[in-house]
Nucleic acid binder design. Structure first.
Length: 264
DNA sequence: ATGACAGTCTGGGACTGA
């Protein structure tokens, strides 16, 4: 079973790239972020024609998440209990979607497509929102794992955090900025404290994002901010991981590239 | 070559991203 995550930065602009990627990489489940459209605007037909089902969650032109699967879909969950909103706690954004599929071994696998809030600047309310959002997600997912230690679950997407200094092209450039602060790194590490394992770090080394500006990609000035956490039962089945750097090339790329894992 | 930012909106620049 091959699982991937990709911040696509508008599905309407890049649906052809998505279909080509699914077929070229033989993907079973793909989590998308920043689809940037309402559900009724989502280009379903090209993806369905390739043999996949789509579950989309988009409220407006901002954010938006989706899960694409060619394995049977058993259950769908929009957002997670305790998810905070912005700017009001009640105003939930389209940043989390959980889709349970029938795994290749017959066991259900729940795949979360996550678009963690950016945080903007450290003194911006969006930064506190980011930390609260992550804390609520860690509490929710940790509780699910305590209920069922055999749970097969991924938490994957654009985490908007660089856990290590080496995950950014120049740590000095990020001094005083979001993505590299200790509270963000602690929030990321809490998922490991809850028992999840980030399964791509040990298997592949690359950035996953390069800004469109300042020739960041040709100069390889990137960031590693897209990750896949897996529950212990799923993590033990991971055979390999890849970062599809070539997807940053050519005409009209997203600024992020896909992260892929192979599960037995 | 991978090349100097890109997507969406009921727009005429503003907002968002990181």
């Amino acid at each position: 079973m091959r699982i991937a995550t990709w911040n696509i930065n508008s599905i309407r602009t890049r649906v052809d790239r998505v279909v080509a990627f699914l077929e070229r990489e033989n993907i079973d489940v793909l989590a998308l972020q920043e689809t940037k459209c309402k559900d009724e605007q989502f280009p379903l037909m090209p993806i369905e024609a390739a043999g996949y089902e789509v579950v989309a969650h988009g409220l407006n032109q901002w954010n938006g998440v989706a899960v694409v699967s060619r394995l049977p879909i058993l259950n769908t969950q929009v957002g997670f209990p305790g998810q905070p909103g912005f700017p009001d706690p009640e105003n939930l954004e389209a940043r989390a979607l959980g889709v349970t599929v029938e795994g290749s071994s017959g066991t259900p696998v729940t795949n979360w497509s996550l678009y963690v809030p950016n945080g903007r600047e450290i003194d911006n309310p969006h930064y506190a929102y980011k930390l609260a959002w992550l804390d609520a997600l860690a509490n929710y997912s940790g509780e699910r794992l305590r209920e069922n230690p055999e749970l097969q679950m991924t938490l994957m997407g654009d985490w908007n955090i660089a856990p290590l200094d080496t995950d950014v092209w120049d740590i000095d450039f990020f001094a005083g900025r979001t993505h590299v602060t200790q509270p963000e790194r602690d929030a990321f590490a809490k998922f490991a404290d809850e028992g999840f394992k980030e399964v791509t770090r040990d298997l592949v080394d690359n950035y996953t994002y390069w800004d469109y500006q300042q020739l960041r990609f040709p100069k390889n000035e990137g960031m590693r901010i897209d990750y896949i956490y897996a529950s212990p039962a799923l993590a033990s089945r991971v055979q390999s991981a890849a970062i599809d750097r070539n997807e940053r090339k050519g005409k009209g790329p997203s600024d992020h590239v896909p992260v892929i894992i192979e599960v037995d």
